[in-house]
Amino acid sequence: MLAEILQTLPQVLVDGLALGAIYAVIALGYTMVYGILELINFAHGEIFMTGAFIGVAMLILMTGMGWLAAMPAILALILVLVVTSILTGFMGVGIERMAYRPLRNSPKLITLISAIGVSFLLQDLVRFITEYKRGNYILTGPSMFNEQFAIKFSSISSSFSDAFFKTSTIILIISVVLMMIGLDFFVNKTKWGMAMRAVAQDRETASLMSINVNKVISLTFFIGSALGGATGVLFAVQYGTIDPYIGFILGLKAFTAAVLGGIGNIRGAMAGGIMLGLLEMFAAANLQLLTGGIFGAEYKDVFAFAILIIVLIFKPEGLFGKAVTEKV
């Protein structure tokens, strides 16, 4: 059994890092909003999905106009990522302004219901625009960055098999790492980042210190939504097909990653996303072997959520979160 697990381990690591990188960036949107408003923005998964559709639509349009053939593919992708980030960023700001700000002083359950409502609204809006019919239509973007490479792990040891990946996997991982580093620098080293941390710590005191709380909250939604939209484009390029329902399950798993790492902790969300992606790919490759054929790869989600439950039982604040003492 161990020999078979080791054989698939290199490919599991490559695929797990790619999937975990996507979870990590989406989880950042959840954890940033929660850190400031203590709100679970369940519409964030649909912002990711909308970004995927905007990016694919732009790529299809550029292909039809001949622009994609006239410029380097990486330049076209950067252009699409920038435009999609801006559009989804402003979408996030609009959602906060219309759906969350009027309810800011209401019970948290009401705001949560509003977030779920926005989620279904975006889902159905995209479905209506694309005339999606479940099971009959999946939007497929232009084929990009599909060149295959191999890492020769077998030359290191016969216990391992070779790992194969596409150019898009490299682009995905590099882009996500740059986004994570950029966000971490912004939050910890800039004046606006300091303002965000101040608002997260104590909103009322921050407002007394001449910090514009509404602007800080809008900026938080803009950054989180922009990163989510850009990740949607990278997801579409990496996996090839999208539909209006991808945001639900991916958003749920990214929220799980944020909780796993410690909700409200930015670096914890990053680590939680990577861990969840690796766990899911490991389960998909080896669950049937580990259970003697009782469970197959389709139970990988159960495996990932079971790990989460175990972690939360013994460390409710998450792996990298800090226990907060309630003041009475």
Rank of each mutant, 00 (worst) to 15 (best):
A52R: 04
F48D: 06
H44K: 12
Y30I: 01
A21Q: 08
E46V: 09
T31F: 00
I22F: 07
M49S: 10
F48R: 09
E38N: 15
T31Y: 00
M49Q: 06
F48P: 02
E46H: 11
N41P: 08
M49R: 05
G35N: 12
I54F: 10
A24H: 01
I36E: 14
G51I: 02
M32N: 10
V33P: 01
T31M: 02
I47T: 12
G51A: 07
M49H: 03
A27G: 03
L39A: 12
G29R: 04
G29H: 06
L28W: 06
V25A: 05
E38A: 15
H44F: 07
Y34C: 11
V25R: 09
I40H: 06
G51W: 00
A27M: 04
G45A: 09
A24F: 01
A43F: 10
N41S: 12
I26T: 07
I54S: 11
L28H: 03
I22T: 11
I36F: 11
E38W: 13
M32Q: 10
I36K: 14
A27W: 00
L37A: 12
H44E: 06
F53T: 01
T50K: 13
Y30F: 13
G29A: 05
Y30L: 04
F42G: 11
I26S: 03
M49G: 02
F48S: 05
E46D: 14
I47W: 01
A52W: 00
E38M: 14
E46M: 12
F48E: 03
L28S: 04
M32F: 01
A52N: 06
T50M: 15
I47Y: 04
Y30E: 08
A21V: 06
H44N: 10
A21H: 08
L39M: 14
F48I: 05
F42S: 12
A52F: 03
F48Q: 07
A43R: 11
G35I: 03
A52E: 02
E38F: 14
G35Y: 00
V25M: 11
L37H: 06
A27Q: 05
I22A: 04
N41R: 13
